[in-house]
Amino acid sequence: MLRYVAHRLLASIPVLFLVTLISFGLMQLVPGDPAILIAGLQATPEEVERVRRQLGLDQPFHVQLFSWYAHLLRGDLGTSLLLGRDVLDVILERLPVSFSIALYALVLTVAVGLFAGIVAALRQNSLVDQLVMTVALLGVSLPNFWLALMLVVLFAVQLGWLPSGGYVDFREDFWGWLASATLPAVSLAMLQMGLLARITRSTMLEVLRQDYIRTARAKGLPARLVVGKHALKNVMIPVVTVLGIVTSLLLSGSVVIETIFSIPGIGSLLGSSILRRDYPVIQGGLLFVAAMLLVINLLVDLLYAWLDPRIRYGHGE
């Protein structure tokens, strides 16, 4: 187990290095003179020059790269051009907001997706199965930002049950938070719920055909144990492996969803930085999210190893 953890940890180091390199490289993609673009067309030459110096754009490539890493090692992701504040500070300040919504969506995804997938598999080809699979297919096909708008029209504008936007801090008012976070979390979770339900169903059907399920039945175990114990633990293995992808999709969706619901999280920070060309925020935000995902994937790997003894004992890859 320890060897496995160490192996995973070591393997993620080069990836993390490349991730920082890609984040740096993004700035190099900016065509023409980034300083003019950033400062704006109306800017005076002095202002452009100030931006150029502030971003270190007047330095040669290797010096820029070196200084990028020198700052990174000190935990410095740069300074926001618009807010004039440290990018990491801004991100950390907004992290709990994004985290609370993402966690809510993740819980919804796993609870609903897993349950629906299992029920559909156990009642294969029944009406319930077809209904679940249709909804799941719609879930992976409907654009989440559009779905969010439709939910707002229905639940906020027409029915008036839930707020159409804004955010209440969960530390101050939990129920207020729940009300403000429900529509965003549901719109954010739809895609992953559908994905997970589909994967769970097909995995469950696969597992139910396995010889060891027949053995469990031949032993005289009741269906409750055959499904709830023997099948479920095997279903969880592939399901856990997609949790990394699921989280990645959640973070992807958070940009539009937080923008639509005016939630002051990392997603809306990125969303608003795009059009204003606040490159340090985009760069730093991307790097932060990617690094966070690497950590989450590491945790998923550990969960996977804990579930599957074949991995835990170093057999197979």
Partner: peptide, 16 residues
């Protein structure tokens, strides 16, 4: 009435 099967490799549950 007990039963044993052809495939010992797959007839036992790998995770228990």
């Amino acid at each position: 009435i007990a039963m044993i099967f052809q495939e010992p490799m797959t007839s036992l549950n790998p995770v228990f």
